[in-house]
Design a binder for these strands. Structure first.
Length: 286
DNA sequence: AATTTCGACAACCGCAGGCTA
DNA sequence: TTAGCCTGCGGTTGTCGAAAT
């Protein structure tokens, strides 16, 4: 039954890098006899290697139709496109690139293309734009470990703040029974809401002196125009988690928190942070 | 100049499915 | 029919040269 014993039973077989003499022997033998049975190849070629090792050396390095040298831009693009369709099916990808081996493509992917995509903000697994904060953090570490972490933290903070303001707008636009009757009466449309509530809030997110308070944290450096653009134009804004109504267990009414937030007597940023914390507990943005 | 770290790539390992004596 | 080898494949490791310290 079965075939010849497997070569792995032979413990004296050589491993590791091939010498030029071994290469010569293997090439010479295959050119004369072919390689119908890889287990016989090393024995008949006079090599102290297993058939599997010979096969790999031939298919990945010695084959005459192998294209040596670096990959062109076109080849790299093709690999990326094929990978987005086929995934880690290296042999199937290699079939579309004459002269390239699956091993070569796999190595190129792991050493170059993965990083290239990450730097472009593309997830190398899904080929979609990166949205996972953890992945973004990894990417940041890859590019500029210290500076980028601070930048990313600022961006995440900005997103959280935008989320809060989105919720404020949503509350103000909620039809009857209104969640915040007093505010809705005072600001019946979105423009008025912005003029009277959000515009003053801009000062919370800039490093300019605020007419409301002079005691704002220097860390709040989010540009108000970015904030506005995000609120009005950014499609991601609409994908933020939906508002969870404040429950009676929250001791401070939500409208009172907003009023407190824009009140000139408000002398610290703690309340806004409290709202941010509450929001995070109720409905974490990520 | 010596040593360490990093990147690229060749080679190996182990598994799954196919094949054959 | 079936035991067990063969082949292909994807993941992982090892080696070596270049760059950095």
């Amino acid at each position: 039954m079965g075939r010849y014993p497997c070569c792995k039973l032979d413990i004296d077989l050589k491993k590791g890098p091939w010498t030029s003499e071994e290469d010569e022997k293997l090439v010479e033998y295959i050119q004369e006899n072919g390689h119908r049975n890889w287990q016989l190849v090393p024995k008949r070629a006079g090599l102290n290697r297993c058939g599997k090792s010979c096969r790999l050396r031939w298919t990945n390095y010695l084959r005459p139709d192998i294209k040596r040298g670096g990959f062109s831009e076109e080849e790299e693009e093709m690999i990326i496109n094929l990978h987005s369709i086929l995934g880690n099916k290296w042999s199937r990808i290699a079939a579309h690139l004459p002269g390239r081996t699956d091993n070569e493509i796999k190595n190129l992917w792991n050493t170059h293309l993965k990083k290239k995509l990450l730097k472009s903000g593309i997830d190398p697994v899904t080929h979609e734009p990166i949205t996972d904060p953890n992945l973004l953090l990894s990417l940041s570490n890859l590019m500029n470990p210290f500076e980028s972490v601070l930048k990313l933290q600022a961006e995440l903070t900005e997103m959280a703040k935008i989320h809060i303001i989105q919720n404020i707008i949503q509350v103000l636009n909620t039809p009857s029974p209104p969640l915040i009757p007093s505010l809705q009466e005072n600001y019946p449309n979105i423009q008025q809401c912005y003029n009277n509530i959000l515009a003053p809030l801009d000062h919370f997110f800039t490093n300019e002196p605020s007419p409301i308070s002079n005691n704002l944290s220097d860390n709040m450096v989010v540009n108000s125009s970015i904030l506005e653009n995000n609120m009005i134009n950014n499609s991601e804004y609409s994908s933020l988690p939906s508002l969870v109504p404040v429950t009676p267990e929250n001791s401070v009414p939500f409208d009172q928190q907003i009023i407190d937030m824009i009140n000139p007597s408000y002398d610290d940023f703690d309340a806004l942070e409290k709202i941010l914390d509450d929001e995070a507990n109720i409905n974490p943005p990520f």
